[in-house]
């Protein structure tokens, strides 16, 4: 118990760092994920190709590698940003590939006749997707998106290795100060549970609210 009470502000900073990384990366991942899912089902071949390449590259390479590419690679091209922003970029882009596939699988659950009816009425592709298909796909993508964002929260620990303040990194100064490593990690785990269970609860509410089948 001492390790937490003695270092409350350190733990607090770490937790705040993880929450920040999770929230910003989630927003980026959701925006990019929905956009890429739209690309993947678009009637334009080049957009579909962009979506496919995006998903296959990001989903099939290790996140740590992506972190190295962003943190070490982008400055080579003159793009120097705070480490936290690099981390948000890496986490957001990586997770967007999984969000994209969750959304796409949801789109596939909507009967094709719905889209055909919309198109036969003269609605454009963005209208068909936005007004007809996605609202009906939404309820089936809530659970997988929840899981993906929980994975994102845990993946944010990798950012600690790249000089970003986050929860897992708290153990370093604490072990230097001689605290029990076990209790240090127990409280770190509790911090992660706080974040992930909050996400779970949020998505449970969303599912209750929008998951009703009509």
């Amino acid at each position: 118990m001492n390790v937490l009470l003695d270092n409350l502000s350190l733990y607090g900073q770490g937790l705040l760092g993880t929450v920040e990384l999770t929230v910003y990366s989630s927003l980026l991942a959701l925006v990019l994920g929905f956009l890429m899912a739209a690309f993947r089902v678009a009637p334009v071949g080049s957009l579909r190709a962009i979506g496919t390449v995006w998903v296959n590259v990001l989903r099939n390479t290790p996140l740590t590698l992506l972190f190295f590419a962003v943190v070490l690679g982008l400055p080579r091209f003159g793009l120097v940003l705070p480490f936290t922003l690099f981390a948000v970029l890496a986490l957001g882009c990586y997770t967007s590939a999984f969000i994209c596939e969750a959304v796409r699988s949801g789109i596939n659950t909507v009967p094709t006749g719905q889209g055909e009816a919309a198109r036969s009425l003269g609605m454009s592709f963005p209208q068909t997707l936005g007004d007809i298909v996605l609202p009906q796909a939404f309820r089936s993508v809530i659970p997988p998106i929840g899981s993906t964002l929980i994975a994102l929260a845990k993946n944010s620990a990798i950012a600690g290795a790249f000089s970003v303040v986050e929860l897992l990194g708290v153990y370093k100064p604490l072990s230097e100060r001689g605290y029990s490593i076990i209790w240090t990690f127990v409280w770190i785990a509790v911090g992660y549970l706080l974040v992930t269970l909050t996400i779970s609860a949020l998505f449970h509410v969303l599912e209750k609210r929008y998951g009703v089948a009509r």
């Binding site: 009967p111 006749g113 009816a117 009425l121 003269g122």
Partner: peptide, 17 residues
Amino acid sequence: LRAEVGMVFQSFNLFAH
């Protein structure tokens, strides 16, 4: 052009939501 031609399907395809 599709807006000028109405279509009625076998499976109705009303917007379920």
